[in-house]
Computed example of a mutant assay.
Amino acid sequence: MLESTDDHILPFQVEGLDVRGRVVRLGPSIDSVLNRHDYPPVVSKVLGEAVALTVLLGSSLKIDGRFQLQTRSNGAIDMLVVDFEAPDRLRAYARYDADRLAEMPSVATGDLLGHGHLAMTIDAGGDMNRYQGVVPLEGNSLEEAAHQYFRQSEQIPTRVRLAVAEAFGGNGSGGSHAWRAGGLLVQFLPAAGERIRTQDLHPGDAPEDLVMPPADDDDAWTEAQALVETIEDHELIDPTIASEQLLFRLFHERGVRVFNGQGVRESCRCSQERILGMLKSFSDEERRDMVGDDGAITVTCEFCSRKYTLSPSDVGISDS
C-alpha cells in the first residue's frame, strides 16, 4: 500500500549501493506557511527550499528535540528561520527587503541570499548540550550549502535535491493555486568505513593558488549520485507520484527498501504563556515603551502571524 504523498517523510535504503536516505513531500503544510505571510513568489520559493531541507535533516533526530536552520546574509533575503520539532512539527519565516528584491535581475537562490552564513542547530532540550554547525553562504544554493555542511561537519558523502513550485488549477494563473515542496537526501554509509574517501582539508599555510585534488569516489556512490541527478524537479513535487514510485524509478535495479513513514504538520510553538515569559525578560522601562496608544501591548508572532494583546498589568507594569 502506497503512503500518502502530501506532508510525509519516507526513509529508505538501497543495500546494493550502500546508501540510505529520506524523501519528503510537502503540500498543505508548506502552502499554509507561505500563504500566511503573502511573500513574493521568489521569497516563497527560497523559504520552501529551506523548509524541505530542514525537514530532511531534522527528521533524522532519534530523540524528541528541535532542529533549526537559520541564515544570516547580506542578500535581498537576509534571514531565513525554520524550526522542526521532532517528530512532525514545523514552522518558518523569512525576512527580506522588498525594494532590493524588485531591483534584482536574478531570482537564483544564491543571488537572493547573497553572502553570509547558514547555521544548523540541534537542541535536544533539558540539560543536554546544543550542537551547531555553521557553513558560509557565498552566493551558493541551499543544496550546495548542505553538501558543504556534510563535508566539513559530518564527513558523510551526501547528495541533496530540493524543489518548490506553485501548482495551479482551473484557468491557469487565474484559478486556484497551492505551493508544494519536495526533497531527497541520499547518504553513502557502507559497512566498511574505509570506503568513504574524503578530500583533505586545505592547509592554512599553503600557497593561495594551490588546488587540492578531489578524492576518488567509490563506484557505488558514483552510481547513486548519477541516479539522483536524473530526478526532475516536477517529480519531487507532483502529487500524483508517490514517494515509493519515485524511489522505484530511481533504484529498482539495485533493490530499494522503504521503512515506516512519518507525517509532517505546520504548527507554531507560540502561546500566551511564552509571550508573557519573553516580555518579562525585558526591563520595566522597556516594557513601558511597548505600551501602545490604546494602552495595551501587542505582539505578533513572526512565524504564524498570530497577534497577542496584553495589558500592562499582565507583564507587571503598575498604573502608577
Rank of each mutant, 00 (worst) to 15 (best):
S73H: 05
T121F: 14
I275R: 08
E208P: 08
H8W: 08
E302Q: 15
S173L: 14
S267A: 12
A163S: 07
N74E: 03
Q155G: 02
G263A: 13
G58H: 04
M212P: 01
D294M: 10
V33I: 15
R159L: 08
A94E: 06
L47M: 11
K45Y: 03
L53A: 08
G169T: 09
C270L: 06
R287H: 12
K62Y: 06
V51H: 05
G21P: 04
A181P: 01
S320G: 03
L210G: 05
R66K: 15
R89F: 05
E244V: 02
G27F: 01
R72S: 15
A52P: 01
L201N: 12
R20V: 11
V135Y: 01
D111V: 00
D216C: 11
M128T: 05
R89E: 10
R161M: 08
L189M: 14
G170K: 11
I237L: 05
Y149R: 00
G75P: 01
S44K: 02
H8I: 00
R66C: 09
G263C: 06
R249T: 05
Y39I: 02
G58T: 07
E232C: 03
N129W: 12
V264I: 14
K280R: 15
L90A: 10
R159H: 05
A220C: 08
L90F: 07
F12A: 06
N260Q: 13
L80M: 07
G133R: 02
P213C: 06
F67V: 03
E273H: 15
G183P: 06
F84S: 09
V43P: 00
L69E: 04
S305G: 02
L2H: 12
F248Q: 14
S283G: 10
G21H: 08
L310H: 12
I317L: 15
S44I: 00
A191V: 11
D284F: 09
V211S: 02
T309L: 13
W179G: 02
H234C: 03
Q148T: 01
V14H: 08
A52Y: 00
M79Y: 07
A220R: 15
Q148S: 08
C270M: 04
S313P: 01
D88T: 10
L118I: 03
D99L: 12
D294L: 08
G16T: 02
N129C: 07
T240V: 03
D238G: 01
L162F: 00
E244L: 03
Q148G: 05
T309C: 13
F282L: 10
L162S: 02
V228G: 07
P87K: 11
A181K: 06
F168Y: 15
S60A: 13
I237S: 04
A86S: 14
R89P: 04
S59V: 01
D97K: 05
D88M: 12
H202G: 02
H115R: 11
S73A: 14
A226T: 05
A178Y: 12
P136H: 10
S73D: 07
L17E: 10
